[in-house]
Amino acid sequence: MKLALGPLLYYWPRQSVLDFYADVADSSIDSVYLGETVCSRRHELRLEDWFEVGRVLAAAGKEVVMSSQGLVESESDLKTLRRIVRQAADGQPGFRVEANDMGAVRLLTEAGVRDWVAGPTLNIFNPTTLQLMIDGGATRWAVAPEISGAALAEVRAALATPIETEVFAHGRLPLAHSARCFTARHFNLQKDTCEFRCLAINDGITLRTREGEPFLTLNGVQTQSARVHNLLGDIDDVQGRAEVLRISPQGSHTRDIIDLFRAVLDGMRSPVGALAEARALMVEAPCNGFWHGRAGVDQYVAA
């Protein structure tokens, strides 16, 4: 089993981001996804800066993957996407790419790139669609979080050739994307003049029901779960259905969470014990419903 660090979904100050990845370089993580996938207005790190972070991580022995934008709207978004594809095609710096929309799939295929990751927003729900991606050069499938463990096993079982599979194992779930910025809306601002108010909100803004129950998280144009999807307690069930576990960066304790997953994979901790230990490291209560084919918000414990 490999551990992967997903793309940073929040907007942190430049120095915090650089410090964060310096720490990651020193961790036991295997793969690191880099790049801005949420909002093209965010610019603390430019694409070149992300490449530089990638070079440092690669030098530390990490596999580096450049994630493409989830919602491509403008010609300038397409320009960024083309640069991400080009660096993979011409080997400068030659990082693998995670395709997060079909435009990225088209450009990667056209450029003859044969080793990319089919990202979680591609809506791959069945073997026929996954096979189309494999034929186009996909060599890893990062599964959409809403697909259950049983459903992804069925997809894999029907494939002619197996594909490395990655599941979202820890973090607030990315649930939806909009043209509207909900953080700007909260501060009564428009997106075009948002004053970058999402900067330094480390884990997004919690949205609660009128009973005070944490429900969702506002992260700019992205809406996440308030709860932390956590598969630490389900690792025995995940093994055999996936080869890569994705941990999503959070404001603090990301390194501790990586260590905890590593300890479970190495047999040093029990899954149940690790999940109990993780409670102090999470920003909110855990959930794992999606993996068990239930409402995502559920925390399911087998009877």
């Binding site: 989830g70 919602l71 927003t121 809506n123 959409a144 979080p145 809403e146 779930l173 649930l175 939806a176 994307h177 909009s178 043209a179 509207r180 969702l216 809406t223 779960s225 419903g289 999606f290 084919g293 239930r294 409402a295 995502g296 918000v297 559920d298």
Partner: peptide, 15 residues
């Protein structure tokens, strides 16, 4: 309000 086809809010709340 969300990008159609990219919204799992209902799945999160109801399955």
């Amino acid at each position: 309000v969300m990008v159609e086809g990219r919204c799992a809010l209902s799945a999160y709340a109801t399955g």
